[in-house]
Every structure is written in C-alpha cells, then in structure tokens.
Write a protein that binds this DNA or RNA. Sequence first.
DNA 1: AATGTTTTTGAATACGTATGCAAGCGATTT
DNA 2: AAATCGCTTGCATACGTATTCAAAAACATT
Lengths: 338, 338
Amino acid sequence: MNKKPSSVDVAKAAGVSQSMVSRAFTPGSSINPEKRELIFSKAKELGYRPNIMARSMITKKSKIIGFVFGYLENQYYPLALEKLSREFQSKGYHSLMFFSDHQSSADEIVQEFLQYQIDAVILASVSLSPDWIEACHSLSVPVVLFNRAIEADDVTSVTSANYEGGKKVANYLVKTGHKRISYISGFVESSTNKDRERGLIDGLKEHQMTLFSIESGNYNQKQAREATLSMFTADKVITPDALFVASDHMAFAVIDTLKYELGLKVPDDVSVIGYDDVPLGSAPSYNLTTMSQPIDDMVALTVKAVLNRIEQPNHPPERIEIPSHLVQRKTVKDRNHP
Amino acid sequence: MNKKPSSVDVAKAAGVSQSMVSRAFTPGSSINPEKRELIFSKAKELGYRPNIMARSMITKKSKIIGFVFGYLENQYYPLALEKLSREFQSKGYHSLMFFSDHQSSADEIVQEFLQYQIDAVILASVSLSPDWIEACHSLSVPVVLFNRAIEADDVTSVTSANYEGGKKVANYLVKTGHKRISYISGFVESSTNKDRERGLIDGLKEHQMTLFSIESGNYNQKQAREATLSMFTADKVITPDALFVASDHMAFAVIDTLKYELGLKVPDDVSVIGYDDVPLGSAPSYNLTTMSQPIDDMVALTVKAVLNRIEQPNHPPERIEIPSHLVQRKTVKDRNHP
DNA sequence: AATGTTTTTGAATACGTATGCAAGCGATTT
DNA sequence: AAATCGCTTGCATACGTATTCAAAAACATT
C-alpha cells in the first residue's frame, strides 16, 4: 500500500540533504559517521533501500550478471548456477536468467538482455555465434564462457582441460586392457566435445590404436540411448568393450540402456567412463567412473574472471583451463587380469 | 567501445522528438505508422533498445521476477526454474535469482531484492517467515509460493494436493498388503511435508492402521540415508515393509542405502514410494513408484497467478492445488499375491 | 469556406539517485 | 589574529525514459 520511500523521504526525516543520504549509502564517501548512523536508523525505520535502477542510471553499473543457458537437465549446470549465483550474491551481484531455444535467434536474446544493462554475461550449456560476441564487445559488456571455449580471442572462457582429459581417458582405458574403445559424443559443434574427442583420438594414437566407433548423443539422454542401441544392434558381430561418454548425464542413460535394454553387464561386458563427476555418479546404483571437472574451481575462477573484466575495463580476456582428473569407481574393469 | 545509444540519439537520426521515439516503442501508443517504421529502422541501425532501468523509473515496472531458492539439488527445482523462466521470458519478464542460506536472515534477502524493484517474487524450495510477507505486502510486491503453502491468507500459493497425495499413498500401500508403513519426512517445518504426512496418517487411520515409524530426511540425501539406516539398524527386530519418502530426491538415496548398504531387495523386502515424479525416477536403475506433481500444470498456473497479481493490483491471493496422481513403477510390491 | 473532430506531434517534466563544485566550518599552523 | 588546511555539507545537474498537456495538423462535416 505504502509507496516505497526514496532518499528524499529519508533526507527529510533525518533533516539532511538528499545528497547526504546518497553518500551514507556509498561506501568510502566523505560523511560524518554520526550522521551516517542517524541516516541508517531513519532509513531502517522507513524501510528505505537505494533503488538500484536509479543508481544504475548514474553509475552505469546494474550489478546484474546475465546468465544464458540452453538447458538445465544435466545436473552439472544447476549446480554451477547455484554456486556461481551464491558467489556473486555475496559480492553484491545478482543473476538474471535467459534461456535460449533453438528457434529464437541468438541476436534476439542478446538484444533482450542488453536492455537490462547487465554488467557481464555468462554463457553456459549454450554455444554462441560470432555476432553475439561482436554485439556485446561493441557495447563493452564482457562475455565469459562457462564450460565452453571458442576460437575468437576477445572473450574469456573457463573450461576444464578437455583435451588432456580425453587423453587421460584413452590412456586409462588402454592401460586397463581395452581393445575396442568407442565414443558417444556430446553436441558435435561444441568446443568441449571437440576437445575431448580430439584428446581421446590422439591418446589412442599414442598407443597405435584408433577409435572403434563413434555416435553422437548430443548431450541428451534420449539420443545417448539411441547411440548406444545403434552401437550394439544385432547385426554388429563385434561390439565395443569400452565406451567413453562425453558427459555423466548421458552416461547414466547409456548404462541403463546397456544393462536393462541390451542385457549387458557393466563393467563385465562393457566398461563405461563419463565426464563431469556429477553427484549422481557416486550413487551406488551407478558408481560411475568419470573424469572430474572440479566445479568449485571452475566457479571460483569464473567469478574472479568476471569481476576482473567488470572492474578493469581493459583487462584482457583470458582462456582458463582447470586440470581434470580421473575418478575411479566401478564402471571400468581391468581386463588384464581376468 | 561505443556508448550505448539513447532515445535522443535515435530521435536526432530520425529527425523527430524523443517523445516520439518513446512512443514508437510503446505498443498501443498514438503514432503515425510510417514514422514508427522510420524510427525502428534508425534504431536498428544504431543498435538502440530502450533502457529497462530508465523505463522502470517511470512505469514502476521492472519486468523482473525475483526467484528465491534454498537449493537446486532436487531435480524438480531446476526443472521448474527452467520452465518458469522460459514462460516468463516469452511474456517479456526475466528472472533474477536469490539463494537463501541459513545464516543470512530472511530479512536481509528481502531487503536485497527489493532494491531491484522486482514486480513479484516466487519462493521455491524455501520457507518464508511472516516478516517477509509483511515487508513485501506493505511494498505491494506480490508473493507467490511455489510448492509451499502457508497459513497466512495474503499470499498466493501453488502446490499439488499434498494431503490427498498422502492419503492416496496410504490407500495404495494398504491395498497392496503392506502392514508396517514408515515415513521418511522432508523438512519438518514445510507445509508440503506436513500435509503429506497428515494425509498419510489420516489415510492409514481409515484402515485402522497407524504409522510404523517416522524419521526426518530434511529433503536431503545424506539425512535420508541416515534415516534409512536408523530404521533398519541391527537391534530392530521388526522393520518396515514399506517406506513413503517425502521426495523422489531422497527416495533415490533411500533405495541405494537399502540395496547397497543394508543388502535388502526393493521391492521384495521393502517397498519404496516417492513424491514428485522427477525424470530420474523413470530411469530403469531406479524405476521409482511415486506420486506425480505435474510440473507443467504447476508452472502454467504459477505463471498465470503471478501475472494476475502483477497486472491487477488488487487481485485476491489464491491457494491453488493441483491434483497429484500415482505413477506405478517397480518399487512397490503387491504383497497380497506372494 | 468555416467549423468541429480526431490524430499526431513536441516541449516540459518527473522518476530516484550519484557526483562535481563551492561554500561552510572547525582545527591547525604561521 | 590571520591564514591555511581538511573535512563535511548542500545545491544543482545529469542519467534515459514515459507521460501530461497543449499546439498543430489532418480529416470530416455542415
């Protein structure tokens, strides 16, 4: 019912000028500490808090970070979202959500969120076309890719060491005696997927081996299931003895398909190794061996990178890679000692 | 590099007044269609879009919906978030995220997001204290509870029919011949949990039965596991033959504990029934029998309720309940025909 | 041709805040 | 006692937009 009080109202109540109220709420401003206390108490009384919209008109800072997601299905992303948001929240920023669908052009979304004068934009589970970057760059809003990279060098990206990760998987599967290693890929266009695949192939090559087969799962469970079925379809006489799946999320579907549709034993008949190290992977029902992308490190470095670029307008974009490591559980079998 | 163009810049370029540019972007405004086209083309050329911050100072509408979450662990919430956000996005609204931790008082968070002049606030996976309501109400920002209800009647809430859901569970478990039915609860203070529990107990009473035992899982997996262990600990000679678990999320942990820690068979030794019908429940590894809260209905009605309260300032708060129904899968055994 | 009616337009203002500038003031130095 | 310094304060303005009001233009009616 009551209109929201403004700095003018507080000023009147405290018998000071509006400027002073503003200064009271601006840390590091020149103001008598006693007056500040007085103003704070009056403000509390009236239920006043500075209007961020009005403030942002002057300061050109909205304290809003735009998040663009393609989907939240893969548990890794909501987790990342929560951790990132909490971190930003503790630093006075908040997250505004945008979801991209395949219909709406990238351009539309950019236009949409630029209206909010966001201070930076984080792209996750979505790839971005060069026009986005250009548009954002020309309006000097920093772009940070989370778990995606891109060739362009005027954008900051944070990923795990996907190429090395792929190699480590190759080494591990070879070392454990696998002879027919297949790959169920993510979204084929995504850098993350490409790097993991390249790492895997190069890793195999070092052992004079090649990929046994490959199918696209497109980072979703339905297609991962289909990919699995097609790899083990009846007319194939020789089938893989190990599957590297580009994300845990898909790996769960793969394991279910293997076990309950194809009647195969994991890892006795087929080994499966995922990527991400999502919490569900440690559930005894899956017990998934996987490559970990340490989420806390990813988040911490992302936040730091974003703040750097916000606070130092000409901070150079960086390409940050977090080392990933193998998490051994029960879906890979050592075939050397049968 | 380029500063963002303003309506004044566009006005100059098109040779009209600033007012007219504003009108061009205000649907239903009185303006010559040809001029509007001209302005649109000039705007596109310059890369102009109205500044929402500035606009909101006049209109008092920020086109921002505040979301408050306690956690996103339970898959139901990220899904709801995505669906809600997409829906709002298509209607010109966007979602600003707030995460509550147990340390920071509710009051702090309210203060924090009221700064953003949000048009409404949706509470999910979090309970809210009466002071919140009061604060929001007095500033006339509508509060909508998603999957939570509250005694106060000046707040809109959308839930599934939890009480009836609990009853249906009771009936189903009794009908399938269970004699010792226990409950693993969610956060004991939450309305959702209380209603499910009450429904279960009342439902049992109708069959002259009582709850065999109860433990709190607090909606998280760790405590759900502990609750399960304590229900089946060695010194108990009689143990439950059915477990109603207040959320699927916990039910997965319960099943894993039962199967892999206690060496029990589900459903042969113990039946388990969850609540929510989260996608993972349909994975063959769990195949969880559960009560469904149809998420699309929940979302659609939430969006409608929020928009109603935004657009019609004195639209009365409503208490919306969606019927929930049983989803039969494989974690409940019919013990009548052994 | 003169009048009335509707539509389109621009000038001016308000929204709530931050900040440059100059004035006020008490304390310190000469 | 005068001059200087540092701190605190208020005035005035700017940010980018929507909107009221009155003027102007277009059109319709007699």
